[in-house]
Structures are given as structure tokens and as C-alpha cells.
Write a protein that binds this DNA or RNA. Structure first.
Lengths: 340, 340
DNA sequence: GTGAAAGCGCTAACAG
DNA sequence: CTGTTAGCGCTTTCAC
């Protein structure tokens, strides 16, 4: 039923050479008679020989695989990166193994463990938290090829690619302030994820630098899903003295806010202004289109591959910390507050 | 620098037993003295022993990996499935390898080849075309665990999960006809992808069964991207006698149509009606919300895992062909034609 | 140039 | 219950 795969031995036998010679011919190294080489290659093709990477890996130590641990592949931010990694890696004849952490530190730990057992060549991770991470620290210590994206655990000097979350948030909020807003609400998803924390910091800085006192009642915390964000937005705007503008720290929350405004009968930008962190397709489909802080997301994947390949090839260079700037993409969801 | 990993041999030595005993203790099979077992486990933990799956795989033939070959991981349809596969597989202690075909048959061929070399346990594929596929046929012949989703090459009796594209399209178009439309346009992405072909067939059937002559000038072909769909829509509606309604065969095209209508100054559902195949987040964010043909997408991943696991466990049962029905999700993008 | 031989780390008979 | 042994398929010295 299952005709066992053709092995190097079969090819060698059929070509009347030793396994060693066959291997040399097929992989093109060492000395091989052009004559024998030719014969081996022909036979291999005829037999449909397809090297066994497992055996090669056992011999050489590693499989041509790179692992990717995103927070959640459903998040368009991560699926874009997964796509880019897949494409980019193909050029280096590697394959991509994806295992999401679901933004859960414990799951992340297990996932990384199970990936390590597979003897991958390296791992690209978006850590679920910015808490110190002994597991990653240990891997780094061992010289395991590791690249961190989007978020970084405290005190880990590792190759990493992030964006300037704090500045992005500061610009966004400052833009709202310059548009005349004073009561600016924020929805973030707790301080668990480092990026959210930085974006919150940027929000506070902007307010402070303009001499506006931050009102804790205008800061809501909510899990990063559309429906939770809807609830949070509604709570925020059901107050006596509702905010005139809202800043959301990720695209799922921005979408939640959009829906909440609709159900509240609040129209943008007339009744309320909105700026979201992270661009998303829908932002240009709505009316008005949404002003967002955009990140150069397409640069992340290719750069991550470049970094991990350098490590795999044995680079011992100091860790590279690349931080991309963000850009405020002004569209139509902000205007001067009605009452102002 | 790179402290070579602890092997079973190290553990066995430290615990004063043979490798066989150590293996038995660690993997919990065969007879092991509770005493020795205990010792081995302790030592293993202390040494930080972490089995080498590559070696196990070489021995047993396969890695605990399942490959997934989607058309394009950026497509939300596929990222949802990838997510579900990842989750589901975790329960069976397997990992997911993702390599997109980019909807390109040649790339698909190469990708499958490279995945096969990795001795995966099975492959879940969304074939790029519905043309007969000798490569997949050969794998099936060999008894290679294979599950096809979304699309199926002709003449391949393989485990598969599809949706009833033809009926979904027929219902959608019939709904437009019942709403009074006669000039109903269609945008599809060529007949390369089987699903598009079936949806086109459903469109024609609906028209025919209502005695409406299909007008070839109302059928546009366009690559499946938002921007191409915009162009196609504009071309379709720039005619003398423009259609009153449009049916799009996938969500990217639906989005393109929405944008095109906006730039043409056509407002839904007043000036034009729209129904798209495949639901998408944005469909409920726009104003009006878009009426779509929805597929039970969340059922696909779990079922695919169930199927592939059955094959991996050696099931020789006849191929299962599961076809899910679609459902017309009526929202606000359809009304009676203005002129009617 | 080419072959023989020695493993990579692990598992699975098979003896004891 | 436990140790010995024989490889899985491949690469890589090391002789010839």
C-alpha cells in the first residue's frame, strides 16, 4: 500500500556507486566523477528520489524550519507578518512553523518548549508580556537564534524589532489636543502587553505636556476584542460629562469603538472624534474614514528574517534593536469638539 | 558557547540505567521498576533533558507536524482556518507548518514537495486550481494523509470539506431577482479557482430559472484583490445601461465594489444593490451593512483536523466528502431597483 | 575519485 | 523488570 520512499541507498544501488558518492553527486560537494555524478542524478530523478530531511537533520542537527509565535494569527497585524515571513523564508529554503501563544504567557511557554524539541533553526516571537522572561533569557544565553518582534520582555538584550509606541500615541493624542479636545478618553487592554503600556504612557505624556490633567475616569481597560471594546466605549460615553474624543490602542478596539458610536447614535467627527493605533482595512471603508497611527508593518517580516538568518549563520554581533517610527495617518474622524 | 543538548544517554548514565530503561521511564511504556523510573525522571528534570524529536522521527518515520497549504494566509478566510487548525492540533500534540501557495499552481507544487521532504504526518490543502492534479493523486495513491478544503481538483476521491458554492450563489442572485433586479452584474476571478467557477454557475442558473437572459457584458473577470475589483466595478457601471445590482464572488471583491460605488457616487441600496459571497468583518461596519452569502467557516478547521487524524491513525475508510450549506445573511445592501 | 565505516539520538525487538 | 543490540537515512572523515 504505502510504497516506502526511495532512499539514498536505492539510488546508489541503481547507479552502481556507493551511498557516499551518491550523496556527493546529489548535494554537489567534494569530488565526484562528472560521469558518475550524471548517472546518479538521472537515476535519482527516475526513481523520484526525495531526500529525507529528517535524517539530514539528525546528522546536521537542525531542520530548515523557523518557528513563529504570534499573539494570535487572527489579528491582521500578525497574519501580515506571517505572510511576509513565509514569503521571505522561502527564498532561503526554509519553512515556517506557526504556533500562537493566544497572548497567554503559560501557553507561550509551552509552545516554545514544544517548538524547541523540534530542533528548529530559530524562533521569531512576539512575547505575550513585557515581564522578564527566564525562558527566553536562557535560550539567548545558549546562543539560540531568537528575534523578538512588536514587544520585548524587560531586561533582554536580544535582536528585536519594535515600533515607537510611545511617540505614536503621543502624536495621536497631541493631534486631538491641537484640534481643541480636552476630554480625551483612552481604551487600552491592561498593562499586560507591553505595547499597550507604552501607548498609555504616550497618552499621558501628551496630556501632561499640554498641561491637561489626566482624568482617570476617562481611561478604560478592556480585553482586546471588538465586543469588549464596544462595551467599554459605551460605558465611557454614558457618563454625565462624556469625553469629546477617544484614542484606542489597537485596531480591534478601534473597530469596537466605531460600532459603539453607531449604536449610541454618535456620529464622527461631528459628535465625537476618534484616533486609533494601528491601521486596518476597514479604516478606509467607513464614513468617515478613520485617522490612525500607522506602523510600517511590511518592513517587520523581511527584517526579522534577515536578523534570524544572520544569527543562524553564526553571527555573534551585538543584539540589534530596531525601532521603527510611526506615522499619523490623518483621515476624517477628527474635528474640533462640538461644544468648543 | 552552545552547550550541546542533554541526550538520553546522559540521563541514562546519570541515573545508572541503560538508555532503553531511561526511554521507557520517560515515555511511559513497557515495564519499568517504579524505583528506577522515579530516579530517571528526577535526573532528567535536573539535567533539563528535552527529548530530540528529530531522532524519534527518524526512528518512527514522522514528525508530529501537519502541513497547511492555504491560498494566501492574508485572506481572512484562511487565517481563520489556520487559527482553528493551530488550536485544534495542539490538543493532539501536533504543530502546524504553513506554506501558502499564493494561488499559484507551480508554487503549490514546490511547496508540497518541500513539505513532503519534511516527513510530515499529513497535509491539509486548499488546491489553487480545480484542474486534475497528478501530484495530489499520487500522494493519495500512496495513502498519504491528505485533506482538501474549500476547493477540489477534478477526479480526486479524497477527504474533503467544501461549501455548496453553486447553491449559495444561486440563492444570492435569486434574492436579487426577487427584489426586482433584472440587470445583475457579476465579478469573478476567472475560472482558475474552482469555487469561483461554481459560484458563476450558480449565478447563471438563477438567472436562467427565472427566465432572464444572461448578458455577457455584465460579467467581469478580475484578479481577486481589492484594487482590481474597484476597476472592474467601475468598468461595469460606466456603461450606457448600467446594471442595477452586483454579485461578487469573494470578500475582497465585495470590498472593492463598495469602494468603487463610493467613488462613483452610487449609494447603496438606493442606486445599486450588492450581495457578496463570503462574510467579512467590514460587512457590518459599512453603511448600509452588506448582505452576504456566509459559510460556516469555523467548522472547517476542526473537521479537517478530525479527518486528518483519522487517516494518520490508519483509517482506510472511503473518502469523506463533506459539503456545508451556505446561508444568505440579509443585511441592508439590497432594495428594489430605483427605476422599477 | 570513490568506498567503507562510523555514528547523529532514539526506539524496539529480543534476551536475560 | 532491564540491558544489549540493531538500525532509521544520511553525511562525513579516512583510507584506498
Amino acid at each position: 500500500m504505502k510504497p516506502k520512499a526511495v532512499t539514498l541507498k536505492d539510488v546508489a544501488a541503481a547507479a552502481n556507486v556507493s551511498r557516499a558518492t551518491a550523496a556527493r553527486a546529489l548535494n554537489g560537494y567534494g569530488y565526484v566523477g562528472g560521469d558518475a555524478a550524471e548517472r546518479v542524478r538521472t537515476v535519482a530523478r527516475e526513481l523520484g528520489y526525495r531526500g529525507n530531511r529528517i535524517a539530514q537533520a539528525l546528522r546536521q542537527g537542525e531542520l530548515p524550519l523557523i518557528g513563529f509565535v504570534p499573539g494570535d494569527i487572527l489579528n491582521p497585524f500578525f497574519s501580515q507578518i506571517a505572510h511576509d515571513l513565509d514569503m521571505e523564508l522561502r527564498g532561503s529554503r526554509h519553512n515556517l512553523l506557526i504556533a500562537a501563544s493566544q497572548e497567554d504567557p503559560e501557553q507561550e511557554r509551552q509552545v516554545i518548549d514544544s517548538l524547541r524539541a523540534l530542533a528548529l533553526r530559530g524562533l521569531i516571537i512576539a512575547p505575550a508580556t513585557s515581564d522578564p522572561n527566564p525562558q527566553l533569557a536562557a535560550m539567548l544565553e545558549e546562543g539560540y537564534p531568537l528575534v523578538l518582534i512588536d514587544r520585548v520582555p524587560e531586561g533582554l538584550d536580544c535582536d528585536q524589532i519594535t515600533v515607537d509606541n510611545r511617540e505614536g500615541a503621543r502624536n495621536a493624542v497631541d493631534y486631538l489636543i491641537r484640534s481643541g479636545h480636552r476630554r480625551i478618553a483612552l481604551i487600552h487592554d491592561g498593562s499586560r502587553i507591553g505595547t499597550a503600556r507604552e501607548r498609555l504612557a504616550g497618552y499621558s505624556e501628551a496630556l501632561e505636556s499640554r498641561g491637561i490633567a489626566a482624568d482617570p475616569a476617562l481611561i478604560a481597560e478592556s480585553p482586546s476584542t471588538v465586543s469588549h471594546a464596544i462595551d467599554a466605549t459605551i460605558r465611557l460615553f454614558h457618563r454625565q460629562d462624556p469625553p469629546t474624543a477617544l484614542f484606542t490602542v489597537d485596531s480591534l478596539m478601534t473597530q469596537g469603538a466605531m460600532l459603539a458610536f453607531r449604536s449610541l447614535g454618535l456620529s464622527m467627527p461631528h459628535d465625537v472624534s476618534l484616533v486609533g493605533f494601528d491601521d486596518f482595512d476597514m479604516a478606509t471603508f467607513s464614513d468617515p474614514q478613520i485617522t490612525v497611527v500607522s506602523q510600517p508593518i511590511k518592513k517587520i517580516g523581511p527584517l526579522a528574517v534577515e536578523m534570524i538568518m544572520a544569527r543562524i549563520q553564526g553571527s555573534r554581533a551585538p543584539a540589534r534593536h530596531v525601532q521603527f517610527p510611526t506615522q499619523l495617518t490623518v483621515r476624517g474622524s477628527v474635528s474640533r469638539p462640538r461644544s468648543a
